[in-house]
């Protein structure tokens, strides 16, 4: 039997009752394709303050620091889910993030 899920091209009979979803179902989709601009980090300017991490409304920033190497002290946006809202670039105190037009 097909797993009941609200998926593109799911058949009528395969939809979950009441058009519902279990938590975490967004993991099955890449929702970042809405994005028209992407945040690009200048690691030279980054002070690892975590403003981008805390301000991101979609929680796509990940702390890359491995606990040893200072070169890993930065945060990276997950482009599979980043919608390109630009809040990280606006809030970055060092203006280390630039919103760059996505090439089609």
């Amino acid at each position: 039997m097909t797993k009941p899920t609200i998926d593109a091209l799911a058949k009528v009979g395969d939809l979950p009752l009441g058009f519902t979803a279990k938590p975490g179902s967004t993991m099955d989709f890449k929702t970042g394709d809405w994005r028209s601009v992407r945040p690009i980090l200048d690691r030279e300017k980054c002070i690892h303050c975590a403003f981008c991490y805390y301000y991101c409304p979609d929680g796509v920033y990940k702390d890359m620091y491995d606990g040893k190497d200072d070169a890993t002290k930065y945060f990276q946006a997950d482009y599979d889910y980043c919608k390109g809202c630009g809040i990280c670039a606006q809030e970055c105190p060092k203006k280390a993030i630039t919103m760059t037009l996505e090439e089609v």
Partner: peptide
């Protein structure tokens, strides 16, 4: 937990 009242994009609204 379940989520009720979801978005139905053109790919699944008809269904």
């Amino acid at each position: 937990p379940i989520s009720i009242g979801l978005l139905g994009a053109p790919e699944c609204y008809t269904e």
